[in-house]
Design a binder for these strands. Structure first.
Lengths: 136, 136
DNA sequence: CGATAAAAGATAGTATTAGTCCATAAAAAA
DNA sequence: TTTTTTATGGACTAATACTATCTTTTATCG
């Protein structure tokens, strides 16, 4: 019932990149040091975020990463689902053939569906436009 | 980011017991068969729920389990926390020495705290008084 | 006593999570 | 062109959590 460390790192990395001056890149090394995230693990995370279109990467000596969109256009849900896949609060909301369907009297599935929708809406409302930009 | 199967089983078992006629006991075997939960696994779950005071158990030939309180007084949060421990949506809301505190500019912790409170409130509002009782 | 039920704790298999290692590719700088 | 710095890709490992089973003991009823 808890966010993976990987997704938490991803949010922190994206937040970090969102505060850089427009156009400025953040390298794996710089983000890793600034946010205290294990370097190799972060490399994997940034790669995944790039693949999913949240970040853009540049190789070479002056390379690194930056957001692919405006900070306010990137949401927590975007980042979390890019890393961990679709958010589901219970097994019965992610599979069709769940225990709820075997029993007519299982009225619990509805509860989880409602919670899930509400939670995902909150994650979708939260974006990276609110963090103070680093000057210069 | 998902409820454990163990907690889901626990909710189903408690729901089942909540529908039994007042005073009637449910044995591990009967609950296991009715809800299609692996017998030995369920045994452990019911034991945990008894230890935490949600159920009352009786040994011997006519033994079994029943709720310790009225169905409407038992909440989803009670059951889930009895099985999985305290509900936390992120590591940073369950430890004091988290990454958020190392960085002045981490404003993400507040978000998780708000979400967590809201989610736990929903779990606390949901109880077992709403399920149809089995006659006789 | 014999049958049945829970209690308790050890064990085991599997899956997921978290993290590492290393070889390769790209781009800029020297 | 060579060196340096950076990302890419994939295999690999370690640790932990999850799911489940097995076994022995204790309690109660008939």
């Amino acid at each position: 019932m808890r966010l993976s460390r990987k997704s938490d790192y991803a949010l922190r990395a994206v937040r970090h990149l969102s505060t850089l001056p427009k156009g400025k890149l953040g390298s794996i090394n710089s983000v890793s040091e600034a946010e205290e995230i294990p370097r190799e693990f972060l490399a994997k995370i940034l790669k995944d975020l790039t693949r999913s279109g949240i970040l853009v990467s540049f190789q070479g000596v002056t390379g690194g990463y930056r957001l692919n969109h405006l900070p306010k256009e990137v949401t927590f849900l975007n980042v979390i689902e890019a890393i961990d896949g679709p958010v589901h609060l219970n097994l019965c909301t992610e599979t069709t053939n769940c225990a709820c369907e075997k029993f007519d009297n299982c009225q619990m599935k509805g509860f989880w569906q409602v919670q899930e929708v509400a939670f995902k809406k909150s994650l979708q409302r939260e974006h990276f436009g609110k963090y103070k930009k680093i000057k210069k």
